[in-house]
Amino acid sequence: MNGEFIPHTVAALFTLAIFSFLWKDNPLYKAAESLAVGLSAGYFTVILIRTSLMRTLIDPLFEEGQVLVIIPGILGLLMYLRLTRRWTWISRYPLAFYMGIASGAALSPTILAYVVRQIEYTIVPMGFGSWEGITNILIVVMVFCSLFYFFFSVPHKGVFGGVSRIGIWVIMVAFGAQFGFTVMARISLLIGRVQFLLGDWLGLIHLE
């Protein structure tokens, strides 16, 4: 028995407990689920204390003398007023502040990723003289039709309806390809887990 047998056995038993959900909800699954939730919640609490509370508030305030961090510190403390009945309304202010700042900050990257970059990369040279040119024609037409599907203030009837229908076909073809690709990735995850059970744990298979 090597030194890894006990941790491998614990990992394997929990893997099997999670797999048992495929049969039905059962006490083994519940135990594994509760442990995963409890452990991860505790783990992430500690991570947050270290990376968020200590690194961005306590250390800058007390070690580097950055007084301005008191402002987000107070906003954070106000969030705890949610735990009271009388003062719970005050906690809406830090929430509103957070939502406003974060939404504003998200605006520019969103426009860049979803609008500007999409347009930029779809402006490609088209033509019938080469395979690339023909592919580019397909790209432009398919993007155009797919975008058309997402027009909401126009009834999808007549010509609009036809273009929109081509758009949803294109989208579904893309989904099919994506589905197959991801299923393959999931199968490889399953293979990895089975290799762990049969190889690392039970030693029935040996992989070079």
Partner: peptide, 18 residues
């Protein structure tokens, strides 16, 4: 709040559904 770990969260939500 459940947890901030992706698959532990999923395990819990699956349990809630059933």
């Amino acid at each position: 709040f459940v947890t901030h770990a992706q698959f532990a969260y999923v395990a819990a939500v699956n349990g809630i559904m059933l």
